[in-house]
């Protein structure tokens, strides 16, 4: 299931927020080749809409006979995907990339925006964790019913604490004394999380996003310095991130041009 997309039927669409929808696929339906998805939290799949494009998405739902992705509305591709209904077909390839290391004691999970999608299955599999989610505004928060005791913050104060998740880290650490932090979200936020983890000597892992094309480590499109994000990532540990010059600073557009991350929008040129 790595090099050729397998066509799968959308079994369910979940409206997650103003911006995001989840698309659920069954891994045992008679027309799909895959019996079950060999997946570990943090990995991603490539989703193909024939005659349009193919884009990477973290798996945000996973069970014995199903998996799903949560997709925020961003551009042409996600617009088309959001218009798709139950019963329509898309191509799936994967899963790809590295996974979170689950072998920790107490964990803190810090998600920002649709970055929550890469953390969702991880949260389900962690035995002892505290979860903080940040979003711009209340209507963009994800999985509020799925993870009921999650701490929330919004930039406009419309839900939870007013501010960003990293504002809460110090207090949380004093309370919970966690051994590890997992994070996914805006890269500026993840940089702050990694700095916090370094200061307090806590191990941390972050899931990064780059423009991914082949997803199998041959085209070089998604590179961050000397790493291929599709193979050596998307999940990277604190030690690797500390040495990664591009982290929080640069990303490559579709033509390979390395641009400051603030101006990178996943565009081709």
């Amino acid at each position: 299931m790595h090099l050729e997309p397998v066509m799968m039927k959308i079994e369910e669409v979940i409206l997650e927020s103003n911006l995001a929808r989840s698309f659920i696929f069954k891994t045992c339906s008679e027309r799909s080749e895959s019996k079950s998805l060999e997946y570990q939290p943090g990995q991603f799949i490539m989703l193909w809409i024939p005659r349009l494009d193919e884009k990477p998405f973290s798996i945000s739902y996973h069970g014995k006979d199903f998996f799903g992705v949560t997709v925020a509305l961003k551009g042409r591709f996600t617009q088309r995907l959001h218009e798709m209904k139950v019963g329509e077909w898309v191509g799936i390839r994967g899963p790809f990339g590295t996974a979170f290391n689950l072998n920790v004691g107490k964990a803190c999970v810090v998600g920002g925006g649709v970055g929550m999608a890469s953390l969702a299955v991880l949260i389900e599999r962690l035995e002892d964790s505290v979860v903080v989610q940040g979003a711009r505004t209340a209507s963009e928060l994800l999985y509020r019913n799925r993870f009921k005791d999650m701490l929330l913050c919004t930039e406009d104060g419309s839900a939870g604490t007013k501010g960003v998740p990293t504002d809460l880290l110090e207090d949380l650490y004093r309370h919970y004394r966690f051994d590890a932090i997992y994070t996914c979200g805006p890269e500026a936020m993840m940089v702050k999380v990694s700095e916090f983890a370094r200061e307090y000597n806590i191990c941390m892992q972050a899931s990064l996003e780059r423009y991914i094309k082949c997803a199998v480590g041959v085209c070089g499109q998604c590179c961050c310095n000397g790493l291929r994000l599709c193979v050596e990532g998307p999940v990277l540990d604190g030690g690797t991130l500390e040495k990664l010059e591009d982290f929080g600073r640069y990303a490559r557009r579709g033509n390979g041009r390395r641009v400051p991350i603030g101006t990178y929008l996943g565009k081709k040129t």
Binding site: L52, E54, R93, C214
Partner: peptide, 14 residues
């Protein structure tokens, strides 16, 4: 000049 390349999928195995 810069070239954007083709849309995905750009690679397929057999």
């Amino acid at each position: 000049e810069p070239l954007p390349g083709h849309n995905n999928p750009i690679v397929v195995g057999f």
